[in-house]
Design a protein around this nucleic acid. Structure first.
Lengths: 208, 208
DNA sequence: AGGCTAGTGACAGTCACTGACAATTGACAA
DNA sequence: TTGTCAATTGTCAGTGACTGTCACTAGCCT
């Protein structure tokens, strides 16, 4: 059983996060000050920064929660799958179980809306991209492990992940720039992009 | 002939930029305040912000100067080249003529050292990555134009650029994390990575 | 019950950045 | 050359993210 103190902390953190996400999606990231959030939760601004390293961290918290799951999913993919297939399947799997991961904090709808906010807020997009670099490094390690190659000597794990990551970021961008902001549209677009890598890399497009 | 006023402005801007780059590479980005830079150039802090939208813009100015050249180079690549080849050749070409572009402001050495600073400074790396998104969008437009396809309907231009961009960012990262920080090492690594895309995407690595 | 300590609020300070206004200085015509 | 206009700059005040410090409160544990 958790102690009262721990439960209180948990509640404060969740209140801050929920309020922050609500305000970010409602009035935009830049137009929401940390003071606003703290005031709405009725804690001091200083307390906000005791729970989150910065405003960005709160904004990206939901996306962050899905990362651990993704890495796990890749690790658990059957060994016979080609690396790129394992990555694809793991991502799709992650989206299927999205709700289980974030439901304690926010509904899937908020997760998806935060993606729009991220893509349309330069400073948030920048932070998001920087984080994906770290995720890609972790993925490369997992792939190297899975395939039994030496990450220091063999560039293929990082290369595969770089290609995959580039395509996934394109997917995020086009999805959030499009009209259909459903999870299903995201899935469809991702699969279509991943299948399109081969054709796109072929010699010329004009000979159709 | 330029007017005196314009020459003065030019001189102020270059002094600010040169000083900023010098301080960034010498003592790090975070440890250099805008006040430091302004004081060193003997202008007010306000003036710094009249020449640069922010501290980041000064830090990324050199890298920015090479972008226009890169886009031009892609446009001028022979039409028979495959899209990915055109991108590769344009980048290599850009590095060959690097000095011509930036010599008015700083030597190539500073350009290369700023890359280390960017890669090792989270907030700068984030800004750099965000900018590459915009560059990729421009590249996709150029490719679509070159190949005569409709960017809105055909995902191949963006897909190609996404893959290319992912691999180039991997190149930057590994280069700056390595030992040899020469332009030649960067070239070699880029070529090796671009050639490795195919093999990395193959079914399995274990069958060698 | 009372000491210990984690968690918090209040306060002061730094740094990036912005708006407003006054002072300066180059440009240009009379 | 001189006076006017406009561009450039400095000063000042303010906002917002973030950090260090310190005293205080409240849960914890004996």
């Amino acid at each position: 059983m958790e102690t009262l103190r721990e439960r209180k902390k948990q509640r404060t953190r969740e209140a801050l996060l929920r309020t922050a996400l609500e305000m970010f999606t409602a009035q935009g990231y830049d137009d929401t000050t940390v003071d606003d959030i703290a005031r709405a939760v009725d804690v001091s601004q200083r307390t906000f920064f005791r729970y989150f390293a910065g405003k960005e961290e709160a904004a990206l918290a939901l996306q962050d929660m899905t990362v651990a799951r993704l890495l796990e999913a890749v690790r658990e993919r059957p060994a016979h799958e080609a690396p790129m297939d394992a990555l694809r399947q793991a991502v799709l799997e992650g989206w299927d179980t999205l709700n289980e991961v974030i439901e304690a904090v926010a509904p899937v709808e908020v997760f998806l809306r935060m993606y729009q906010v991220i893509e349309s807020t330069p400073v948030l997009l920048a932070a998001h991209l920087r984080r994906s670099v770290e995720i890609e490094e972790a993925l490369a390690r997992i792939l190297a492990d899975r395939e039994g190659v030496d990450l220091a000597a063999d560039p293929r794990p990082r290369l595969t992940v770089a290609v995959f990551g580039g395509v996934m970021r394109l997917t995020e961008r086009r999805w959030s720039g499009g009209r259909d902001h459903s999870l299903d549209a995201l899935r469809t677009l991702a699969v279509s992009h991943l299948e399109g890598i081969g054709p796109a890399l072929s010699e010329s497009w004009r000979t159709h």
